[in-house]
Nucleic acid binder design. Structure first.
Length: 275
DNA sequence: CTATCCACCTGGCGGC
DNA sequence: TGCCGCCAGGTGGATA
């Protein structure tokens, strides 16, 4: 469950359980995920109080005392559950448990193990390898048409690929790029350098709307993955193009939604509505 | 700079 | 039932 709205949903689920609570223990069941866990990972975290939780793009940042930051990325298949009372026996891909002093267990599960869980020092977080090149937060004022145009300027890559690039804008993934481009009337194949300022303005606006709506819907639920609180997100019911190849476009009702492959990933669009 | 292929992994699905 | 290929919400590296 890994684009910005899903990560934001996870963050919001964790805040009431974790902020101002102390980790009594941390249990890892393997050496690492996409990268190894740091040396002494569990020891460094146990006994530490969690100060606050933020999100940067698709990364969760959990700030603890002693200027320690726990960095979490969910990859393709990572999910987090909040467990209280009757905590089940860990199953196959439950790789990490964060146990708090008030009896809550935060369990990290990730079948494909493309996720990342690591530590950093607070003062180095701005220059951290994983975070330093990430573009503006799409829901903040640092993201606007002028900034976007500057990033797209002269680029010969398809706009779809540009928006997937976390250096251009943070947090968008395969679903929300297709949905944002559709709502903006921009073909995913259009070269970045050929996006007009007017279209960039529209795109910025639509990215904001799509992400905000998705967050309000609790994210998107694919393959029955659950939110940390066990609930399902339901933005998938608001998809207009993603996964709808072969269906008649619900907007123009003239063309069928097409699926194409760009940079090895599926893109969904309406060739009539998007130019 | 860009496109393409690949790697990292497991699981679910449809087809035979 | 089983095997097989293909697909999947991500990212980074090598190559041409």
């Amino acid at each position: 469950m890994p684009e910005l709205p899903e990560v934001e949903t996870v963050k919001r689920s964790l805040v009431p359980h974790l902020e101002n609570t102390v980790l009594s223990s941390v249990i890892t069941r393997r050496k690492g995920l996409r990268i190894p866990f740091p040396e002494q990972f569990c020891q460094k975290l146990s006994g530490k109080k969690i100060i606050n939780i933020t999100r940067r793009g698709k990364y969760l940042l959990i700030y603890l005392e002693k200027d320690l930051v726990l960095i979490i990325h969910l990859g393709m298949s990572g999910h987090i559950r909040v467990l209280q009372k009757n905590i089940p026996v860990p199953s196959k891909h439950d790789h990490i448990d964060f146990v708090t002093q008030n009896g809550v267990t935060i369990r990290y599960n990730d079948p494909r193990r493309f996720g990342i869980v690591t530590l950093a020092k607070r003062e180095t977080i701005g220059s951290h390898k994983l975070l330093r090149n990430i573009g503006p937060e799409p829901l903040s004022n640092s993201f606007n048409a002028v900034v976007l145009m500057k990033k797209l300027n002269g680029r010969n890559i398809a706009i779809k690929c540009a928006l997937l690039d976390q250096k251009i804008v943070a947090g968008l993934g395969n679903i929300y790029v297709s949905e944002s481009l559709f709502r903006s009337g921009i073909s995913p194949k259009r070269l970045s350098k050929n996006i007009s300022f007017k279209k960039a303005e529209k795109l910025v606006k639509m990215i904001r709307i799509v992400l905000t709506d998705a967050i309000n819907a609790g994210g998107s639920t694919l393959n029955d993955h659950r939110r940390p609180d066990g609930k399902l997100g339901y933005f998938q019911y608001q998809f207009l193009v993603y996964g709808k190849n072969g269906e008649l476009c619900g907007y123009c009702e003239k063309a069928k939604i097409q699926k194409i492959i760009q940079a090895g990933r599926s893109t969904f669009f309406c060739s009539n509505c998007q130019r």
